[in-house]
Structures are given as C-alpha cells and as structure tokens.
C-alpha cells in the first residue's frame, strides 16, 4: 500500500487556460491589424503606433492572469500549493497593475502617440480578450471531479 505513487493533483483547468491564451493571441492579431489601419487613417503615424502599443498592452496584461494560473499550477503537487497558487496569481496581478500604471504615466507625456487612439485600442483589446475568455469557458468541458480515483472492482478467485 505504501509503494503507490501519489496521485497527480494538477487541476483540470490547464487546457482551458491554455486554449484561452491561444485564441486570445489569435484575436489580438486581428484587432492589431484593424486598430492599426483605423489609427493610421484617423491619426496618421502616431495613431498607428498608438494602436499597436494599446492593443499589445491590453492583450498582454489581460493574458498575464491565465499565464500566472498556469505557472502556479506547476506546483500542484506541492504541500504548499494553496499558498503558492494565491501568491503567484495575486502577486502577478498586483505587479501587473503597477507596471500598467507606470506605463500609462510614462506614455501620457510623449508626443509621438495619439492619446485617444491609444485609449480606444486598449478598450478594444480588453473587450476582445473578455469575449475570448467567455467563449472559451462556455465551450469548455471540465470534468467535475478531476483527481478522484474510483475503487477497482474486487477480484475474487
């Protein structure tokens, strides 16, 4: 009984999060093209640069949440998993917001950006990433109980 290997306790959420990251990246590419063209048309080269930076910022910062959960799930078999999980996820979250605020403050002053295009492309990127998240979760099939092992049928002979 003692030589049984401990069950793998990796949560079942990993494939869903990975799929969300992949589709988020794909949709981000589409948004990137559309917002760049719109930015170029409405605000010239500063608009183009702003659209690129805004979309990338939105998608990267929204994607960090699922990336941090995936990273934390690597420690699923550790005894300290709950602590590690919430440390990594919430720590990543707060670092992300500090970096975002610093980026916003830094980018506000520069003259080669168009603030309106930047803001609108951030909003577009955030909304697109939300749509992808909801669609991926709605289409996902998660088993209810992931790491339960059913008892084997008794062998009588």
């Amino acid at each position: 009984m003692n030589d049984v290997a401990p069950a793998d306790r990796t949560p079942t959420s990993n494939p869903v999060l990975r799929r969300a990251l992949t589709w988020g990246g794909l949709l981000a590419a589409v948004i990137l093209v559309v917002s760049s063209v719109l930015g170029l048309v409405f605000a010239g080269v500063p608009g183009l640069v702003s659209a690129l930076i805004g979309t990338v910022m939105a998608v990267v910062f929204m994607g960090i949440t699922s990336a941090s959960i995936l990273l934390a799930n690597r420690y699923a078999n550790s005894d300290l998993f709950v602590g590690i999980f919430f440390g990594v996820v919430l720590g990543g979250w707060i670092v992300k917001f500090i970096v975002f605020i610093v980026l916003v403050v830094v980018l506000r002053g520069v003259d080669w950006l168009d603030p309106t295009v930047l803001f609108l492309s951030i909003v577009a990127g955030v909304l697109a990433s939300l749509v992808v998240d909801v669609l991926v979760v709605a289409k996902s099939r998660l088993p209810y109980a992931s790491d339960v092992e059913l008892p084997k049928a008794p062998t009588e002979d």
Partner: peptide
C-alpha cells in the same frame, strides 16, 4: 477536488 472548475470560474 473541484479546484480545476473553481480556478476557471475565478479566472473569468
């Protein structure tokens, strides 16, 4: 044992 499902809900 529901950690996987709850993680996805938490994430969304």
């Amino acid at each position: 044992e529901l950690a996987g499902r709850l993680q996805v809900l938490m994430w969304i």
